[in-house]
Design a protein around this nucleic acid. Sequence first.
DNA 1: TCCACTAACACTTTTGAAGCGA
DNA 2: ATCGCTTCAAAAGTGTTAGTGG
Length: 689
Amino acid sequence: MLGVEMYSGLTVGPQKIGDCLCRDREAPAHLPLFPPACAVTPRLLGPPPPPPVSSDPASKPQRDEAKMELENSSLWKQFSSVGTEMIITKKGRRMFPGLKLKLSGLNPALQYILLLDIVPVDNSRYRFQGGGWQAIGSAEARLPDRVFIHPDSPATGAHWQSRSISFHYAKLTNNTLDTQGHIILHSLHRYQPRVHLIKARDVSRWGRAQHTFVFPETQFITVTAYQNSKITELKINSNPFAKGFREDGMNSKKKRDARQKRKMTVLTETLDTVHCDRCESPEPTTSSTDLQALALTSLPPLSESSCGFTPEGASYQVPEQSIDLSQAFMTSQMSDISIPVTDGMQEPQGNEAANSMMEGSDVMTETTFESDFSAAQSNSSSFPSAPLPPSSSFSSDSTHPQPSFPPVDYPSLLPTTPSLQQTSFTFPTPPPSDASSPSNTYSTVSETPHTPGSFCAPSNTCRSNLQVSADSLHTQPSHLLQDEPVSAAAFIYPNMLHANTDPASVTTRTFVNQHQPPSSVNSSSSSFTFPSVAQQMQTLSLPSVSPSPALSLQTTAPLLPPSSFPHSSSTLPHPSFQSSSCLAVTSAAHHQNMPNPSTSSYTCPYPPVEIGAIPHLGPAGPYRPEMVLSRPNLLPQLDPSLCSSTFPSYPLHLHQGPHSSLPNPFRHLYRQPQHPHSQRSYISTRTVF
DNA sequence: TCCACTAACACTTTTGAAGCGA
DNA sequence: ATCGCTTCAAAAGTGTTAGTGG
């Protein structure tokens, strides 16, 4: 059993950024992945939290051992090797594969909240042409960010660790006016799902237990119709709901073609019957209506199987890895708002169903992937794109076939990287620490308060916020808050674009708090309006927040070794996938604005942090009243280029699954777009289910 | 004309209510 | 009255495809 003491550091002291658990024991343990997101995370996710300012003597810097595995990683990698596409529809479409996760290292007694959000990887729009995805222009304006709250949230660490965690109910939509709480995405854009683990143990120190997990293989491009036949093939073969389209299914191409043929035959024979009395077709005759319909219907050409691709055929081997890109230091202060909730321990029925489905889909064993996924990705990466300086582009080795999609996602870091296993980002707010972090720790990033917009400019309009729903609101003593200034709220998003990122020369950067909107930072209380919430819940009072001191990001992460993509390209021709802008950025970051993994510290300004509603998720009994602080840092951007005006800051919306333990009125919390001049964030709730 | 998107379709799985018997 | 099991219909999740609109 894990003792609570183990997590004390999480609440008050510096913590390890995050760990990724490598399930594949066969593969080199703890191979760090440096996907674009990972590479940018250090700065995108925000600066490390300020040194703990706690009056609690018991508080001691301590690492959080929370780990997350992507259980169906092999399935994801299959798709990733081809170039994962996710259908998005107006009504909302589930993700397939879904995110099936396994958590460990949690304190069984503490409560945690799991969130899923999906952020753009770059600022490019893509088109499938020439057998691969090519960046064809700038991305559309970023849509309001929404977060899907896992239905089980909040639940104890024991709960999360006792079963597979699936975000099966999360749906994606391209309907910008969606009112169902689905995650809104743009079609033909690249996205990266992220899972946030938030500790809800201590209201006053909740923010420091935040972890963000990013699995590079889960990146995908949104589409309204599948572009790559290989993806279609994979989906059909993997998704139980698409069983009907399999070779032996009733809706398979073969049978559909047969039906078409039959129809054609019937039509022909019927026509013959009409024009020839001697016709003796054994086939049933069709009605005149059918005849008309058939006559008017042009028969589609009988296409052959578009793809002979089979999961087994994919030779793309990647190591089983999970990445913890960010472990946020939720700096301190919480709002004084707490909301009672129903029993969070109950498990949604849908969860198991989803899990079962996921299990069925995850047909490959983890051990099948032995190579360094990220390295492989980067090696072959030639993601198009996005307008980038020539120097920033990643040239792919023409001699090596490239996966159509992955290459983009897993930029090679520094070829000179000696060891990935020891790669780790640490934000040693005093004391510095983990330079010598265990080899099992890698790719950890502290997530700091920031938002898409905040990253580019310290303007009020550039702040993203994460807000969590709550059943009810009530004010709680905030003496701790008063004693402990919220440092997180004071961070200014680092302006990476202007940062000097010469990997060779720069070894350390210091996050500098350059901007702190007074209104959002120093206000003793903030009022939140809940348009669709009970009157008594319309307003939330937030504790005062103080600007955070400058932070330093120290990383001992070794650079990624020269990428090597062990997938047998020969068997699976991957369309050329030019490096995406994100990749380019990541790559270029070494020269321009990206934090170099090898650098020991990182300097950047921090955007002001907005504190959102803290749901009182714990029910009476096993769950004590707790609050969840909405943090802007939950919405970091993956691509620094996104910080530009191209993506104005949007409020972050939360959405919780239909089986959420949260009462209906609070299952969805939407952060309505803020007025450009407004420094206050507000939360609205909506009962959807 | 091309491309992205939508809605309808057929098929499947999932879900939950109803019925039945112990 | 309760519980467990089975059955069945409705709901929901799939990819396909024809049509629409820019």
